[in-house]
Structures are given as C-alpha cells and as structure tokens.
Design a protein around this nucleic acid. Structure first.
Length: 491
RNA sequence: GCUCCGAUGGUGUAGUCAGGCCAAGCAUUCCGGCCUUUCGAGCCGAUGACUCGGGUUCGAAUCCCGGUCGGAGCACCA
C-alpha cells in the first residue's frame, strides 16, 4: 500500500488522529556557548559617519544576546586612525543606536585611552613580544613575504623601549618607524606574520588634536580593550576573521582568556547607497540633501521614510549568524515592516498624475471611507460633493477604462465611461469591478519622494493635509507624511 | 598566486556539531482561487531546494575525501 493510499484511508476513516501539531517557528538566535552568568559584549564602529543598515545587524545581534543573558553592552568608538573621522559621528552613532532600541550600557572612546595603550605596549616590549622597525618598512614587508625576519626582530627589549620612547617624543615622521607585534614569521598567511601594532600619524585628530602622533592599529587596541573591558563574546563580520587570528597572539602572550568569537557572513544590500565616502561627496556636491536623504541606506534616512526600529530587530534575528554570504532582501524586510505598521496606519486617498473630471452627479454625494478597515471605531473620512462635482482621478487609470465600463469610485459611488468621459451612474455594477481612489476638489498638492529618486506629484485628500505620520495611501503604498510632501516607505 | 571561509527553492532562513522523527519546516515573492468598496490585510491552493562526484553506513542535507562555484583577507584602515 502506498503512502497516498494510506493517507486517503486515514483522511476518510480516522480524521481525528490527523490533528497534527503545527511546528512553531522559532525566530530565535541560537544559544551562545560558554555563558557563565552575565555576558559582556560590544560593538565597535569607526566614527566615519552615521550608522547604516549593515551596522544595524552588529548592533541588534549583540544587543539581543545581552538582553537574553543579562550583562553589559559596550559601545566602543574606534577612532585610532585620525584620518577619515567625521566629528559628527561621535554624536550620530549613539543617536542611531538609541533609535534602534539598542541598550548601550557604556561608551568607550579609544582616542581617550592612548596612555593606556602606550603602557600596555611598553609592558609587552619589555617582555620581548614587540619590536621597533625604522626606515626599512619596504624591506620589512618584502622579507615577511619570504618568511625572513628583519634584523630588529632580535634586538633587546631595552633598545626597543628606547626607540618606542623616541617614537612617542616625536623624533620620527609619518612612516619612519613602527612598533611591531611578533607573531610567527612562518605563518601561512603573510598578513598574520609580525603585524604593525603602532604607527606614526601626524594628522590632526578631531578629539585630541595634535597631542598624539603614535596610534595603535586596531589589532592592538582591540585586543587589549577586549581583554580589559572583560568581553566574554564577540560577534562581528566575517571580514574580521583574519584579525581575530592576529589578535589571538596578544591574548596568548599575556595568558588572557579568549572571548568566544562569532563571525557572521557578508550581506550585500541591493539598490542601496552605503559607502560613506560616496555619501560625503554627494552631500558636499549637493547631490544629496544630507545623511538622511531618503535615497541613502543610513538609519536616519530609513527612519525618515518611516521604518520602525522593530523591523530591523526582527529581520536580523531571523537572519541569524549565518556564516555564508547573503543578499539583503528588501522584500522580506518590507513585509516585516508592513506587518508591524499596518494596524496603526490610517488610510487616505492620494491621486498621482491627477486629472480633473466632472462626474455629473445630479444630487449631493457623500463619501464615507474608513480611516482603517480593521478598526471600524477609528472613524471615517467624509466629504460632501455638490451636484456636477469636480474630482481628481488618476490619469493612468482613466486611460485603462473601456467605453461603457462601470467602475467604482471608492467609498463614493459608481461611475460609467460614456463618450470618453467618466460620469456618475446610479446603476449598481454587477460582479467585480475596478475600485479606484479619487480626491475632492479642495485637495492639496503633494509630492511623494521615492528612494530611487523619482517624485510623484499628485493630490492628497484634505483630511490628510499637514499630517506628520506614516499612513497608507490606498492602492498606492505606505508613506511617511511631512505636510505637503511625503516619503515613500513601501507598497 | 597564497591563506581562510562558505554552498538548502527566485529570495531569506530551519535542520548539519551529537546520521534515522527530513518523504526537508518556516517566511517572502511569483502564479491560481476566495473574500472585499484598496492592488493593503485575511483565507485557500499550487510551483519551487539539500553544489557535483566518490566513500563510510542497514541508513547521509548531516560524517570523510576530491572537484566546482562563490566570498573574504593578503595595509603603518576599521
């Protein structure tokens, strides 16, 4: 007997036992290993601009685990490269995180910990784990590729300490000396071999000015910070895989306990402008109105369009910590957002490409539209139209109506196409007909800005004018209203 | 080139560590239908996937080997 036959019998004879448990879907992140009590986690953006969608993943993932297990979430601003820092970012990043609902328990700014990095460096130099190279960086690099150590690799700690102090005293210019972390000169990955831990950069720093000229590279500052801040788990992008490898040497030399590391895969976000350099240029040239230009993928731009912070959380939790590369799905993201906002968004009429038409109604007409179809108690939008009223109708729809066809003006009346003109009819249409939105004569002008740069000009019904909220423009899509303009959210 | 990482429907994921409950779950999109004074929401239905080849095993999406494809890194950026 086949499975089909069996099912057939069960279906007809014993339907009761068929009540199968529906597997409940888990939109949950996996448990973290080695959790003993609270966790300490961090996010470490560089202050080159405000946060964008990509950053939100790191923020949400870390925040979500700290919420689950309890503990601390450290925002560590990694500003050890004085070039490419946007001073505004120090303010924008915390604001973005707050909007996302990420609960930062403390903030650490690396440029304010320079003395600490120096003292850690001195200690590790004196223990023989670091050495200074001078004037021969090119050679240093070439020799590394050939797995050959430079001469300085074996110099005495006291000599290295002396040279390091000379670095700090301003004796060298940019690129003339560097402090190197000894690792394994035979490591299969050349970049892991003896990496640069401190370099000289005389660029002015937005926060510390010209006080410091010797800056740690991220692999050094991250290592010592991760340890001294007590990190238990580190979640970050797969692009840091090799960095983790490098940082492990610092932990090993100092006998520090390694945090648990997780690296999630690259996510490419289609049709979205994220690169800070491109955005900055665009703002400068006037192409973009600012960081919150809705054509951008920054969080402030997405906020302006009306996305809810919870949508980000939901999306990133459902994506999990997959190591494989993936494509960000606006489709799914928008669907999640729709689910969250739909119940709260009022309905209004917007007529793009409006064409005025006389509907030739013999009597006064009253429209009666619900503010929200699922919430009858939310009220109605009502307009009174005098006889032979003029209304606005979408141009595009008008051209698609055939001669003699009856349509319905939503929540108003039926209308028939006669002699190329649409006009009132009291005949009730049979079956399914087109139901189309319209706008009364005293409607306002509105421009809807789309993220692809397009602008739809049209008429917005009077009751929606001057509103500042996310609404659904029926048959058009969800938008965020800003008075006489609106930003398109999604369908 | 070298080093590392990965591969489940159109898309995003669950399952892989501890092989059998997977005849592969969920979400989303598309398609069809129902409902409806929105093309939104809701309801019903349908299509659609374990990268390939070997091996181990009674049994492999899951373990092993190899190939292919994709990605990242190879900085005095983070």
């Amino acid at each position: 007997m086949s499975r089909d036959q069996l099912e057939e019998i069960v279906n007809t004879e014993y339907p009761d036992i068929l009540i199968r448990e529906k597997k409940e879907e888990k939109h949950e992140l996996p448990e973290l290993p080695n959790v003993h009590g609270n966790v300490v986690m961090r996010m470490a953006p560089s202050p080159s601009g405000p946060l964008h969608i990509g950053h939100s993943r790191m923020a949400i993932l870390n925040d979500e685990y700290v919420r689950r297990y309890g503990g601390r979430l450290i925002l560590r601003i990694e500003d050890t490269n004085p070039e490419n820092i946007d001073p505004d970012a120090y303010k924008m990043i915390p604001e973005d995180l707050q909007w996302l609902g990420v609960n930062v328990t403390e903030t650490v700014i690396q440029s304010s910990r320079m003395e600490f990095y120096y003292s850690e460096a001195r200690r590790m130099i004196s223990e023989g784990y670091m050495y200074v190279i001078e004037e021969n960086q090119k050679e240093f690099h070439d020799l590394k590729l050939k797995k050959i150590p430079v001469m300085e690799r074996d110099s005495e700690p006291s000599v290295n300490l002396e040279k390091f102090d000379r670095m700090l005293s301003g004796h060298y210019n940019d690129g003339e000396a560097a402090l190197v972390m000894k690792t394994d000169i035979n490591h299969p990955n050349p970049s892991v071999r003896d990496w640069i831990a401190f370099r000289i950069n005389t660029h002015e720093h937005p926060l510390t000015g010209s006080r410091y000229t010797v800056y740690p590279t991220m692999n050094f500052s991250v290592s010592v910070d991760d340890h001294y801040l007590g990190l238990t788990h580190v979640i970050r992008g797969i692009d840091h895989l090799v960095n983790t490898e490098k940082q492990k040497y610092v932990f090993m030399y100092n006998n520090w306990k390694l945090p648990e590391y997780f690296h999630y895969g690259f996510i490419s976000i289609p049709d979205t402008i994220l690169k800070t350099t491109i955005i900055k240029e665009g703002i400068k040239s006037g192409k973009y109105s600012g960081w919150d230009d809705i054509r951008l993928g920054t969080l402030v731009a997405l906020k302006k369009r009306g996305y809810r912070p919870d949508t980000f959380r939901k999306y990133w939790i459902s994506s999990g910590m997959n190591k494989s590369n993936a494509t960000f799905s606006w489709e799914i993201f928008n669907s999640m957002d729709r689910e969250i906002i739909d119940y709260d968004t009022e309905r209004y009429f917007f007529v793009p490409e409006p064409t005025p038409i006389h509907i030739k109604n013999p009597l006064v007409l009253k429209s009666h539209a619900m503010l929200h179809p699922q919430r009858p108690d939310s009220g109605f939008r009502e307009y009174e139209l005098p006889p032979d009223a003029m209304i606005y109708f979408p141009e595009e729809e008008l051209s698609k109506i055939k001669e003699g066809e009856i349509i319905r003006l939503k929540d108003l009346c039926a209308a028939i196409m006669k002699g190329g003109k649409l006009q009132y009819t009291k005949d009730e249409p049979e079956g399914r007909v087109k139901i189309i939105q319209w706008a009364p004569e005293n409607s306002g002008d509105m421009e809807v800005f789309h993220p692809d740069g397009n602008i739809d000009k049209g008429k917005i019904e009077p009751l929606a004018m001057d509103k500042h909220q996310v609404v659904q423009l029926e048959r058009y899509g969800y938008v965020n209203l800003y008075g006489t303009r609106a930003y398109f959210l999604h369908k």
